[in-house]
Design a protein around this nucleic acid. Structure first.
Length: 833
RNA sequence: GCGGGCGUGGUGGAAUGGUAGACACGCCGGCUUUAGGUGCCGGUGGGCUUAGCUCGUGGGGGUUCGACUCCCUCCGCCCGCACCA
């Protein structure tokens, strides 16, 4: 007789075929909301198709799928689609190396990803599948670009931009990490180039404020707040009398204005040469500025290096003291923040202090702790008496503002400046406009042409898409490879019919992925990017799941898109992703990030081959809290394979052999003894798994509860088969979101029904409590005994039971009982002296 | 420097202010097996004078009848940002 055993290779394809054939996970659009079920849009970040999916993808989609399945079975109408972020540099770099068209390599990868998502049994509505590189998709990416252009939210300007010499393209600020290209790691250079930008800075305040409205992890919100970098302060004008020019500065500490003893400009400031012209420092300034501009952003940004700079040979007037203070140029002042010039307050700013020391400039304290305000000399004697902005500081050496606390002093000084016309309240941001043009081939063409006569002309909507032409040479040469496609570049102007040339830059791929979740809602619409009514029936995404690496880029850009499109009355939400879950990484068995160079890569295909998709999916969720990193363990997945899946399968196999007509799979009516204990355990598991899955995404503890239930069914091997069958069917039902194939198989064996068509089980409240419980008996907070007590017994009875126990008696010896705390149905604590 | 988070057995980790260590890995033992593996059952924080007692959640302090959990403080680690005025 051949041994019957759990065989995922037989089970998994069987169910995958059924789901495919019956299109089980497809969900129709319902713009009129005729279906009254609550909608739920569950979405994992779309993959970038490169090679084969890795273990991180498996975790991402196992997570999302568990949520999607759970939502379906609690009665929601679930949208769970899939697509591919298909434009981008890796495919293009591969094309340069191999000559294979990026589309060929990309489509091959997409086929692999699609294959594996099926093989993993992810419940996707495949009817909505899309790739951002398909003209039917990027036609609408171009349409959105034109909408932004119409609203002046897309614009072109010459600016100092980050240039990656290796990838031969510009990069967005967000794509520069420590002065290096986030993609290839080459040191980034600064170049003056004409580029396309999206005006995301217009949305800075709304992007900041609306973070309060969404359920996102605190650290992701913190990163976005940090990146937007809003600071409140004042803009103050410092006048250079010799040239008769006002130079505004931004400061967050206008209360320290009396301590501004010098003035510093960024090397990029357009006026530094004008200012230095004719002074003794003219040559030195030229030399210093040229050196600064050629220095790498990385070494310039080094906060450890000593302060350097050159005097400009001019002075400006401090508007409150009327003193003439000297002007300098120094590379610690950044052109891109504030006004590119600062007032320097060396007594209260470390950087200004360092500069003052290097150049022997006066350091004048103007803020002091309240208890030392009468001793300005002592404060002045202390080097670097830096302060923080609190209610406990007062202004000193500050004219009419002296003795005010620094908070009221700040507003008083700003009001005074305002009255005098020397300054005003102001807000500054770190956020810069989003640079979206790239000098590369494999991206969405920017839909504008440059007419010899009319200048820049947007492509007409009816002429979209501007299709990406095939080219011979993908090699970037400092301009887009598209520029060489002469047939494509040269066109007739849609305005005047004259000669025009196409824009040859393509868009940053983050533009493509900033709106894909909108397209899923109405994926086949060929008259519009989406129907507003249809969009309203699905948006926003109720649960978004992905890696934290997209905390700023993708998640900020998508929020900007939605707000801009909402302002154009094209959609009806203000935020794309109502809730966000950031999954932790799966590390190699050695605890390091997986990389082929370390040789610690676990390939999903091997794992699926050895243990099956269900085991792989359960293991990555069982390994630890899903938002935490965790190291892969081969023995760990074996445990899930054997102790969870194998044991459940054997139970189903054993119990389904029993054809006793009485042994149905529904909850037995009046269980007694072991059967009762088992039925209680099953209901406990229902309650536990439901709460862990619905509210906290604690899949690790949900799976633990299912394992406990299965262990219990084994332990009660002699219990009434009906109770065992019910418990096993319950385990299968609860396991379905995590291990859909085995669960479907086991559930069918036990009940003859399809588990995904069953509602999520409800715990029977009667079965969640027993008639007795174990009363914990404490003396002074220490457990001294335990005793069985009737559930719901009055406090007096519990107190009496506790005091009678031997363990408690032994610790009461000769002591006086001061107090007795009773927690009903739980414990009694006797406080003695 | 600023912001976010973390610190519990040999390991991954459990624990609405109420029995610390669920569940799993590993290890030990038993049964089944010709054997190995599989399977099933049991044990497994440290110490001690072991019916029990005692110590124990990074260190110190506090609140509380009771603290892994709340507050203060120090130490250590991880992540993000960073001459941002």
């Amino acid at each position: 007789m051949s041994e019957r055993r759990y065989d995922p290779k037989a089970i998994e394809p069987k169910w995958q075929e059924i789901w495919e054939r019956e299109r089980t996970w497809e969900v129709p659009n319902d713009p009129e909301n005729a279906d009254h079920r609550e909608k739920s849009y569950v979405l994992e970040m779309l993959p970038y198709p490169s090679g084969e999916p890795h273990i991180g993808h498996l975790k991402n989609y196992a997570l999302g799928d568990a949520i999607a399945h759970f939502h379906r079975r609690i009665g929601r109408r679930v949208l769970h689609p899939m697509g591919y972020d298909a434009f981008g540099l890796p495919a293009e770099n591969n094309a340069i190396k191999t000559g294979v068209h990026p589309r060929t390599a990309t489509d091959r990868s997409i086929a692999s990803y699609r294959h594996w998502f099926h093989r993993w049994g992810i419940s996707i509505d495949w009817s909505r599948e899309l790739g951002t590189h398909e003209p039917s998709y990027y036609r609408w990416t171009q349409w959105i670009f034109l909408k932004l252009l119409e609203r002046d939210l897309a614009y072109k300007k010459t600016a100092a931009v980050n240039w990656c010499p290796n990838d031969q393209t510009v990069l967005a600020n967000e794509q520069v990490i420590d002065g290096h290209c986030e993609r290839c790691g080459a040191a980034v250079e600064v170049r003056q180039l004409e580029q396309w930008f999206f005006r995301i800075t217009d949305y800075a305040d709304r992007l900041l404020d609306d973070l309060d409205e969404i359920r996102w992890p605190e650290h992701v919100k913190a990163m976005q707040r940090n990146w937007i970098g809003r600071s409140e302060g004042a803009e103050v004008a410092f006048r250079c009398e010799e040239l008769g020019i006002d130079y505004p500065v931004f400061t967050t500490r206008p209360d320290t204005l009396f301590g501004a003893t010098f003035f510093v400009m960024a090397p990029e400031h357009p006026d530094v040469f004008t200012l230095a012209a004719g002074t003794e420092y003219e040559d030195q300034v030229h030399e210093y500025v040229n050196r600064s501009l050629t220095e790498s952003p990385e070494s310039r940004g080094d906060t450890e290096k000593p302060k350097t700079g050159v005097p400009l040979g001019r002075t400006v007037t401090n508007p409150v003291t009327n003193e003439q203070i000297p002007m300098f140029v120094s590379d610690y002042v950044l052109m891109e923040y504030g006004t590119g010039a600062i007032m320097a307050v060396p007594a209260h700013d470390q950087r200004d202090f360092d500069f003052a020391k290097a150049f022997d400039l006066p350091i004048r304290p103007v803020v002091a702790p309240a208890d030392r305000a009468d001793d300005p000399e002592a404060i002045a004697a202390e080097q670097g008496a830096f302060t923080v902005h609190t209610e406990n500081e007062v202004l000193i050496n500050s004219g009419q503002f002296t003795n005010m606390n620094s908070v009221e002093g700040q507003s008083a000084i700003v009001e005074w400046l305002d009255r005098e016309g020397r300054g005003h309240f102001s807000v500054s941001y770190k956020l810069r406009d989003w640079l979206v043009s790239r000098q590369r081939y494999w991206g969405c063409p920017i839909p504008v042409v440059y007419c010899d006569r009319c200048g820049m002309v947007p492509v007409r909507e009816e002429d979209l898409p501007v299709e990406l032409p095939d080219i011979e040479d993908y090699q970037p040469k400092g301009r887009s490879p598209l520029a060489a496609a002469e047939d494509w570049v040269n066109v007739r102007c849609s305005e005047c019919g004259g000669h025009a040339r196409r824009e040859t830059d393509t868009m940053d791929t983050f533009v493509d992925s900033s709106w894909y979740y909108l397209r899923y809602c109405d994926a086949h619409n060929d008259r519009a990017a989406w129907d507003r009514q249809t969009l309203r029936s699905w948006m926003p995404v109720d649960q978004y799941i992905g890696g934290v690496e997209h905390a700023i880029l993708h998640l900020m850009y998508s929020r900007f898109f939605v707000k801009a499109l909402a302002d154009m009355q094209l959609l009806d939400v203000q935020e794309p992703f109502r809730a966000l879950f950031t999954q932790g990484m799966i590390l190699g068995p050695d605890g390091n990030k997986m990389s082929s160079s370390k040789g610690n890569v676990i390939a999903p295909s091997d794992i699926i081959e050895r243990f099956g998709a269900d085991a792989a999916r359960c293991y990555v969720l069982f390994i630890g809290p899903a938002d935490q990193d965790a190291a892969w363990s081969d023995t760990g997945i074996e445990g899930v394979h054997r102790r969870l899946l194998g044991r459940l399968w054997r139970l189903a196999d054993e119990l389904s052999q029993n054809n006793d007509a009485n042994a149905g799979a529904d909850q037995p009516a009046n269980p007694q003894g072991d059967a009762l204990a088992l039925v209680r355990k099953a209901n406990w598991a229902i309650d536990k798994v439901t709460r862990d899955t619905a509210t906290r995404f604690a899949f690790n503890t949900a799976l633990s509860a299912i394992i406990e239930l299965i262990n219990e069914i084994y332990r009660y091997s002699d219990a009434d088969p009906h109770a065992r069958r019910f418990s096993a069917a319950t385990a299968a039902s609860l396991l379905f979101p995590f291990a859909p194939h085995l669960s479907a198989e086991a559930y069918e064996m036990l009940t003859g029904r399809r588990v995904w068509e069953e509602p999520w089980p409800d715990a029977d409240p009667e079965m969640l409590t027993a008639e007795t419980f174990e009363l914990v008996c404490q003396v002074n907070g220490k457990v001294r005994d335990r005793v069985h007590a009737p559930t719901g017994a009055p406090k007096e009875e519990l107190e009496k039971l506790c005091l009678e126990t031997r363990g408690v008696q032994q610790h009461l010896d000769g002591l006086e009982i001061a107090k007795v705390i009773v927690v009903p149905d739980k414990l009694v604590n006797v406080v003695v002296r």
